[in-house]
């Protein structure tokens, strides 16, 4: 939650959270209800897995082309932007320089996402993730 707190300290960040595994385990701060944070977690996990699948396809055509593993994604809305890096997400206002600042902080704090995303996400639950998954 340290990263979430750091994100929430930035003016213009509406909400931030962390999710794990099926997207139904999450924590968050900011202007979301529990139910909306649960929905956001599911959407973020689904999109993260989707773009990871796409990057594996790109990689199969051009090995080490620089896209894999995917670190995150951004949806730029009319007034609100959603940033997702690893298993963290942030809803932010479209203010000057805020998107760049938030992405820089998220990339720096979350660190590089490792190759096996599902293990990475599942590891948040603890235990032997390899055994549980495979």
């Amino acid at each position: 939650m340290r990263i979430v707190k750091q994100l929430m300290a930035i003016p213009g960040v509406i909400a931030a959270g962390e999710y794990a595994y099926r997207g139904d385990r999450f924590s968050y701060e900011g202007a979301l209800t529990d139910e909306f944070a649960r929905m956001a977690s599911i959407v973020c996990r689904a999109n993260t897995l989707s773009v990871n699948m796409q990057s594996e396809i790109f990689d199969s055509f051009s090995e080490n082309c620089g896209c894999r593993p995917v670190q995150g994604w951004i949806v730029r809305g009319n007034q609100i932007t959603i940033c997702a890096v690893g298993n963290y997400f942030a809803f932010i206002e479209n203010r000057d320089e805020l998107l760049n600042d938030v992405m820089t902080i998220m990339r720096a704090k979350v660190g590089d996402v490792q190759d096996d995303l599902l293990v990475n996400l599942y590891a948040r639950l603890g235990g032997d993730t390899k055994e549980a998954l495979y």
């Binding site: 773009v51 796409q54 990057s55 620089g66 896209c67 894999r68 593993p69 995917v70 670190q71 995150g72 994604w73 951004i74 949806v75 730029r76 809305g77 009319n78 007034q79 609100i80 890096v85 479209n94 992405m103 990339r107 590089d112």
Partner: peptide, 14 residues
């Protein structure tokens, strides 16, 4: 505040 969308980005490793 989301619609209409103004774009999308995928952040790869490099």
């Amino acid at each position: 505040g989301f619609q209409p969308l103004k774009g999308f980005s995928v952040v790869g490793l490099e």
